[in-house]
Design a protein around this nucleic acid. Sequence first.
DNA 1: TATTGTTATACTCTATAACTATA
DNA 2: TATAGTTATAGAGTATAACAATA
Lengths: 170, 170
Amino acid sequence: MNAGRKTSFAGKSRGGAGVPVRGDRRAAGVRLGVLEGWIGFHLRMAQGASFRAFAGCSGRRQLKPGRFAALLLIKHNPGITQSALGRAMARDKSSVTPLLQDLQRLGYVTREQSQSDRRNVHLTLTPAGRQALGVLLAHAKRHERRLEEIVGRRKTLLIGLLREIADMGM
Amino acid sequence: MNAGRKTSFAGKSRGGAGVPVRGDRRAAGVRLGVLEGWIGFHLRMAQGASFRAFAGCSGRRQLKPGRFAALLLIKHNPGITQSALGRAMARDKSSVTPLLQDLQRLGYVTREQSQSDRRNVHLTLTPAGRQALGVLLAHAKRHERRLEEIVGRRKTLLIGLLREIADMGM
DNA sequence: TATTGTTATACTCTATAACTATA
DNA sequence: TATAGTTATAGAGTATAACAATA
């Protein structure tokens, strides 16, 4: 059906008289419709772009943002338990376990059973972990600087909003 | 080593004299350190929360945000090609293919080979797709309303910032 | 040569459920 | 009973590379 399709979309009509359109690379004149005004959608897109840019910054085979955040949280909260770490990152404990096994295998963290409550495992950075984190921080700061260039003085406001959204499920 | 560990973190000291602390559920007094001021981190957390809330809204076994966005984009751009859809969603074409096979299997979209350029496949919603989208929109609007309640009049500003970030890799 | 779309494949992230041990 | 952590497992989402058809 609709054999002689002319496509309401994909014709050569975009950009008027064949003029290349700036901003062509992604949207290519695609209409977003209701998505245009949807926070959830733009959140997804922005996070994806930030993630890809971070991966690019840290030169391929580096640690992913998740590992990186975990290292940083352990650094700032030495002795934190796995569960507390999971809560801080909003991840289930079963997601935290393999992550830490990884970091331990790399020699970046130590895990010690608590004496007062032997169910707990306390996490601390090793010297190697500290050093690796230092290198990673250089990459991450570069990435963060790019983001800051984009948002400028609206950074505080943006972070405030993002934190409020992050707390929505609580 | 460090046998008699007292843990600089996990003590009972938080909240002063045993007073329950508001906001305890996630951070539980965890220090974020540099992460505190990092846009990338808060972006990740906010997106995660939004994603989980969306999943909750759409009653478990519903369509995920990705499928939903694809349906919406097809609706607003009838005849769009797979590649263009991929660009609009910032996804590789090889990620788009299975997504559309899924939507076609559900009977929500049709795929027609273009006549003018037989490499292209044009996408359109079926009546069933339209109807399903209507139902989904109800859920999604509920979710979006929650987000709007959080950000209030700062919505336009937030979306503007997110779009700029989403364009960072371009 | 370049582009559209498909396939095969592999990797990451995540959660659920069932389990152990501890409390 | 409730919590901390592990394991097994499954599912979603994504990308890379090689490929066929087409331009």
